[in-house]
Amino acid sequence: MKRWILVLFITFAASLAWGLEPDEILSDRGLEQRARDLSKQLRCVVCLNQDIDSSNAGVARTMRILLRERLVAGDSDEEVRAFFVERYGDFVLFQPPLKGSTYLLWFGPFVFFGIGAGIVVVVFRRHRAKTVRMSAGSLSAEEEHEINAFLQSEEEHK
């Protein structure tokens, strides 16, 4: 049984290692690290919700190779991203850039939170105003007397 679990584990571990292939890796460690980071931010245009770092698609491999070439040629991270955006548009970036058409996306949640918080504040204020109003119109001396008498009689019954 244990052996089978091991076999299963190794099978699946191997499948996890797909994507980036050994012959693509740069000898310069610093550049390779930047390449890895960048390729995790870029969308594979075949398998849409996968980054090109882990994708097995042919186009993703070409994109990884091109990306490393740009880095070796001395491009900054921003220039590399621009290279792909020029071709595939903002869609290729997992993190949408902050600009006019994406303001709603970026700030929408805060706006909704603001509206919700506003409603909560208003509702609580009204509620408190109501309680204060009730306690302001408190009982008259006569009523107090009546209640006390009632409580007293309850005591005596016990």
Binding site: V46, V59, T62, M63, L66, R87
Partner: peptide, 13 residues
């Protein structure tokens, strides 16, 4: 051969 021009044309397949 290496698919570079494919990326320049922004093909996805």
């Amino acid at each position: 051969l290496d698919g570079r021009v494919g990326v320049d044309w922004a093909i996805s397949g």
